[in-house]
Structures are given as structure tokens and as C-alpha cells.
């Protein structure tokens, strides 16, 4: 069974929140034996190098726990900013919509799982 976690970031991230999120997420991955993590940042309008690094960190942590990370729904302005900051998030998968991301994850997990259950871990 492939199991995916969905993280929706809807508020501006700051240091503490990011650490809480990393804690929650790693715990959840282990608890649910998740194989994939979707980070939905479609409501994120402002990014800085900190958030970029946080996304990269989360991806790295998930990979250690054998779960793939897909960043979902990045806005054009956000993408341009990240590129200008020199953070192209290599090694992190991306998708435009949650459905697409699910497809990607399903394909990559490739265990023949029909559907993944989305758990919403939502900071505040």
C-alpha cells in the first residue's frame, strides 16, 4: 500500500513553524509508513531563501525515510524568485496540481497501489 501525506502550507512560514512542520512530518512519515509527501504551496505568495531551504530540507529528510517529495502548485512569481535566488530545488519533484502529483508519486512508488490516502498535516 502506498500512502501519501499531504502538507498544505497556507500561512507565512517562519523558523519555529518550519521546525514544527519538519518534526510533525518526519513523525507522520514513520507513523503512517508513508511513501510519498505532497507539499502544496499554492497559497504561498512570498518566498525567501529560508523557505527554499526548508523545502529542500523536507525533501531530503523524506528521502532518508524512503518517501518521495513532490512540491505542488508553485506560483510563477514564486518560481522566478527561487530561480533568481539560485535555488532550483534539484532533486525535488514538482507538479502543478495535487492530482498530477499523485499520479507522479503512484508511478514512482509503482507498487500497484490503486489509491493513496491523503492525510492532511496542516500547520495552524
Amino acid at each position: 500500500m502506498g500512502e501519501f501525506l499531504l502538507v498544505s502550507i497556507q500561512v507565512d512560514m517562519h523558523d519555529k513553524l518550519a521546525i514544527t512542520l519538519q518534526d510533525d512530518l518526519t513523525t507522520s512519515i514513520v507513523k503512517h509508513r508513508a511513501r510519498g509527501v505532497l507539499i502544496d504551496i499554492s497559497s504561498l505568495e512570498i518566498v525567501d531563501s529560508f523557505i527554499g531551504r526548508m523545502l529542500a530540507n523536507i525533501a531530503a529528510m523524506s528521502r532518508v525515510l524512503d518517501a518521495e517529495t513532490v512540491v505542488v502548485g508553485m506560483r510563477p512569481a514564486v518560481a522566478i524568485t527561487l530561480v533568481e535566488l539560485g535555488m532550483s530545488l534539484t532533486g525535488v519533484r514538482t507538479a502543478l496540481t495535487v492530482e498530477r502529483a499523485m499520479d507522479t508519486l503512484r508511478a514512482s512508488v509503482a507498487t500497484g497501489a490503486e489509491s493513496g490516502r491523503g492525510d492532511a498535516a496542516r500547520p495552524e
Binding site: V71, V72, M74, P76, V78, A79, I80, L82, V83, E84, S88, L89, T94, A95, L96, R100, A101
Partner: peptide, 12 residues
């Protein structure tokens, strides 16, 4: 390459 990286971040 920048353009490519930005498009990739958008999932394309």
C-alpha cells in the same frame, strides 16, 4: 537554464 529551472519548479 534559469527559464528551464523555473518551469521545472512549476512541474513542467
Amino acid at each position: 537554464l534559469k527559464t528551464v529551472a523555473a518551469a521545472r519548479l512549476m512541474g513542467a
